[in-house]
Write a protein that binds this DNA or RNA. Sequence first.
RNA 1: CGGGGAGUGGCGCAGUCUGGUAGCGCACCCGGCUGGGGGCCGGGCGGUCGCAGGUUCAAAUCCUGUCUCCCCGACCA
Length: 565
Amino acid sequence: MTRLSRYFLPTVKEAPADAEAVSHKLLVRAGLVRQVGSGLWTYLPAGWRAHRRAEQIVREELDAIGAQEMLMPVLHPAELWQRSGRYEIDELFKLEDRRGAPHVLAMTHEEVVTLHVSRDVRSYRDLPQILYHFQIKERDEPRPRAGLLRTREFIMKDSYSFDRDREGLDRQYDLHLGAYDRIFERTGLEWYRVESDVGMMGGHGAHEYMAPCAAGENDVALSGAGYAANVEVASATPQAVDGLPAPLGAPERVETPGATTIEQVAGLLGVPAGALVKAIPVMTEGSGPLLVVLRGDHRLNEIKLANHLGSAVRPATDDEVASEFGSVPGFIGPVGAKAPVLADEALRGLAGLVAGANDRDLHLRGVEPGRDFEPAWGDVRRVEPGDTCPRGGEIRIEPAIEVGNTFKLGTRYSEPLGATYLDEQGTEQLIQMGSYGIGPARILAAAVEQYADEAGISWPRSLAPWDVELVGLGKEGEEARDVAERLYEELSGQGLEVVYDDRSASPGEKFADAELLGCPLRLTVGRKGVEAGEVEAQVRRGREKRAIPLDGAAAAAAGLWRELP
RNA sequence: CGGGGAGUGGCGCAGUCUGGUAGCGCACCCGGCUGGGGGCCGGGCGGUCGCAGGUUCAAAUCCUGUCUCCCCGACCA
């Protein structure tokens, strides 16, 4: 019997002064977690119960697609990470053992799982495989934040698929998407799956599972037409520019003294920002200077740019603007540019534009891409709210927290780590890999963010540390307490997990704590109710109360509970 | 890494400018009352003022250095 009088559930009235995010405040206030250091958290007993419930949902759905649970260590020899080329990552904790041998603390487990597969998979007959574990990840984050949302140490479910070919990988990937869809449906979260960036480390496809919430770190582009993509990769048709000036036969120079920003130039010339050409000088890793031009009211998406170019980019310095671009900061433009020009697709077909003249205090008007300069074209802008998505709906952008991700890795790790098999012809082939992550802690934090109200947490039924909080009023020895004890047994008999508040605190304090903790159903047994032959039931989501007859109360409560979200 | 803020009983804060016996609320302990929305009365316990050095008769307070934490941004296989 879980009695609150003997349970370590230290609730507090005031949130930590430095907490900002709702989930951070409430998880601490409700006594579920405590901070140890920056980005380092302890789960107290009730918080760990919730974490295990999230884990169990994930475990059941992965087992259902044939994934096999195992456990790999957190401490790895550095050599593995040197072989995969990831030893230089800044977020990787590095340390030495007593003999001075370099080790790392794992931030993920591709290296180790691939090591095992490389050693023990010989034949196509040994494939496919899906292996997974729940294990602590260590990442030396530059800035942990918002309680559990971004920590330096956290538990992740990471699974890995191994196949003989790309078709097999695609199948395993789709199996995972199905399992993930079911997992997030079961958590009770509001969620969506979005296309995501595969990152510079390669791969052939990636999705992210996002839970929308105010404290989210990612921006997601959504539309009513069912489109959902991380803004890092989202594409859309831009809104038209209102009030575009009439085209000219040829560009004309116009004096714009001191006007170095889009707003200043637009204001000075009386044209909308969208009539300007925004020119961004960048240095690319491989091929030197590049002038990227966008519509004046658009923003550069550096990830889309890097993906388009296939190499990393950085902004050019003012010195480079002079030496490499032959221009002046604030007055850069594509007409007569010294460097190659890459134009965003949104500029295609426009005329009568205003662009920098590459001379101090001068712009050009009547500029027309394709006539006055000949760029390479690419979609490198950030989508904006109001754009039209590929499926025809209007784009809106919302913050969200990433709760899961899936990557088609291909041979990114099997190649450097030598994970191969022999096919039917006896030919050695590289194994095709996928990797798939879920952070149970983020599921919890997102649930708190999404459903909290002024009284505290309001768990979905699937994640709550207990199904029912039973509040016993009155003093020890009074009849109501005996009734509460009996009801506890009956509720347990109905298969419900119950926490019983048997403390000698005041009713108000118990109610406040119960609502802070957020179990989906609260049952209150007090003298008044017992005399009337009733128990009070309060559904946490919405906080509405109703009386249920004491006779058969457990079965009625169980029925009510099953109806809850 | 850039910018901003904060370290004083368990939590939230005042005191620092202007150096002079370390305070308040909550929590906690004891006793009593109360018993359906964080209740009341009385009595208590608990603090190297982040750390180190310096100035001074005297430092939470002034000076120097340093550590830690938070927020915004950058970053985030």
